[in-house]
């Protein structure tokens, strides 16, 4: 069949598209049909099955903060996924508690998704509640004041603008909180 596709442009076009669509459809359209957890928001009331909690929609303020996170390209340096690696659960965790692994049902209301690909900075999938507002304010003004050696850019136009700053911090504090993973509820505000 393929032997003659170098002579017939029509035959070529059909074959090239058929090949493409087999893999294309099986890997994009089919998986969400098979795997319902991709679209069902996280909800768990049974502590024996892991952290309890419920994924909720973002508020308007949080969405504004999320838009800033997208616009300023925070996601080129920060991922939002605790992978199925022991080291990830240790690194995304804090104050001695390990982070639960990220699951698709925690991200159902995310668009654009912010999973990220590069960790120039640490993973942020469980950073919600790790630091208080004052810490973030100082950090955005100049990260090196809090963490010498950091290569995170300063964001003075966010730190000095209460509207943007409040929105962004409101968003950051939601990260990873659908799963109520801290036994002592020791989240900062």
């Amino acid at each position: 069949m393929l032997g003659n596709t170098d002579k017939s442009a029509i035959g070529f076009v059909i074959a090239a598209l058929v090949f493409f669509f087999i893999g294309g459809l099986l890997t994009t359209v089919v998986p969400p049909l098979v795997d319902k957890s991709w679209s069902k928001p996280f909800e768990n009331e049974d502590p024996s099955k892991g952290p309890t909690g419920k994924l909720r929609q973002y508020t308007e303020l949080e969405l504004k903060g999320r838009a800033i996170y997208v616009k300023e390209g925070c996601w080129y340096c920060h991922t939002q996924q605790t992978r199925t690696l022991l080291a990830d659960t240790k690194r995304s965790g804090w104050k001695g508690v390990d982070s639960p692994i990220s699951t698709p049902d925690e991200f159902v209301y995310d668009s654009p998704h912010m999973f990220g690909t590069k960790r120039t900075g640490p993973d942020l999938s469980r950073v919600g509640g790790k630091y208080d507002r004052q810490w973030h304010r100082t950090h955005f003004r100049n990260p090196r004041d809090l963490t010498p050696g950091s290569v995170m850019p300063p964001f003075p136009w966010i730190a000095n603008d209460d509207e943007q700053f409040n929105a962004l911090v409101a968003y950051i504090q939601t990260l990873g909180r659908a799963k109520n993973w801290r036994p002592d509820n020791d989240y900062e505000k």
Partner: peptide, 19 residues
Amino acid sequence: LAFVYVWTGAHHMIHGPIS
């Protein structure tokens, strides 16, 4: 190439929150 390439997208999410 035409057959194999299109299947590989999910290798960007290995160990990540995907089936």
